[in-house]
């Protein structure tokens, strides 16, 4: 089938430049701005290109202001790009054709689609009408969402009486009642506690798997991305910095391994083994260049009373932090784009 081989999402040199009003501070500048407005151009997205296959879950990463939300808004159809092309499920998103809108959803953490003062179930009924969902499909979707998110006790409650986590669950379910094939999730776990985050994550994974839905997800919590996405796209200052497997990202940006050993009894002079990250009683954590990790492990085992030893990649947060804090010239976007997963 042609459907399955064509990308669900295809982006070519997509750009967005905002024109932002600019004014010096002070009374005189305020008065001058009454008849002369100055604006400056701000590049939010500086030409990015990527494809996403149907059913793929992709983490979209970048620091605040990198252009993640702007990209998501363009792909969902809210924003017109300044230049470039995008096709999502075969549609040009910003034409906002109803056939497109019926197949996709954009969930932005803070924006609520639910009606504040009425029970959740009533809001869902309204969504059913808006998306013209046949009653049997609707019941099926609701039962499934209830099973995955345990919505039951929340449905009769007015939205304003829900906690933040409960509201997010209900928002997410409401955004998926029409069973979209394309999901844009902008910070779906923002502000939630760990349990609720885990819940939402498991849910998104299950939904994507079950319906072969394509998901593009941004998050500040690396745990979200680790749990959901095998592939990540990193943008930084509006440009594409990395596109590839999460593991490759770690390899590429972290030339170190973390080696942890548990000792039987205290030993002096551990510095001779290399850089020590921490010592907690008998547990020592060392950092070694990747190429030397194997030799180090052998030395540790030979020379120390080792009870347990593990070699791991540094935490992904640390890696991402390194990527984003790298100076612009070092992180030349074009050269760091990896092979697509």
């Amino acid at each position: 089938m042609i459907e399955s081989t064509a990308p669900a999402l295809s982006v070519r040199d997509l750009r967005k430049t905002y024109s932002v009003p600019e004014r010096e501070s002070g009374m005189r500048a305020s008065i001058r701005s009454l008849w002369r407005r100055r604006t400056s151009e701000v590049v939010a997205v500086a030409g990015i290109t990527f494809d996403v296959a149907p059913g793929e879950v992709v983490g979209f990463l970048g620091p605040n202001g990198a252009g993640k939300t702007t990209t998501l808004k363009m792909l969902a159809g809210l924003l017109h790009p300044t230049a470039g092309e995008a096709r999502v499920l075969g549609f040009e998103p910003w034409q906002r054709e109803h056939d497109y809108l019926r197949q996709m959803t954009l969930v932005m953490g803070q924006r609520n689609q639910l009606v504040w003062d009425i029970p959740v179930a009533d809001s869902y009924e309204l969504n059913r009408a808006i998306y013209a969902i046949p009653i049997d499909d609707y019941r099926g979707a609701l039962a499934e969402l209830d099973e995955l998110l345990e919505l039951g006790p929340l449905l009769p409650k007015p939205v304003r009486n829900l906690s933040l986590g409960e509201r997010m669950k209900c928002e997410l379910a409401g955004a998926l009642l029409h069973r979209p094939r394309m999901l844009f999730l902008d910070e779906p776990t923002l502000g939630l506690d760990v349990t609720a985050q885990r819940r939402i994550r498991a849910f998104v994974a299950a939904y994507a798997e079950r319906h072969q839905a394509t998901v593009l997800l941004t998050s500040h919590y690396m745990a979200d991305v680790e749990a959901l996405a095998e592939r990540v796209i990193v943008i930084h200052r509006g440009g594409l910095l990395f596109d590839g497997a999460l593991g490759t990202l770690v390899e590429r940006f972290s030339p170190f391994k973390t080696v942890t050993v548990d000792l039987d009894y205290p030993v002096e002079g551990l510095e001779r083994f290399g850089e020590i990250v921490s010592i907690e009683e008998l547990r020592i954590t060392l950092r070694a260049p990747k190429s030397e990790a194997a030799a180090l492990t052998a030395r540790l085992l030979a020379e120390l009373p080792v009870i347990d030893l593990s070699v791991s990649d540094p935490p992904i947060d640390e890696v991402i932090d390194r990527v984003f804090s790298a100076p612009a010239d070092e992180a030349e976007p074009a050269r760091l784009v990896g092979t697509s997963a």
Partner: peptide, 12 residues
């Protein structure tokens, strides 16, 4: 309040 945006993304 930005609530026009979700309205624009509904197929109606």
């Amino acid at each position: 309040q930005g609530t026009l945006s979700p309205r624009l993304l509904r197929p109606v």
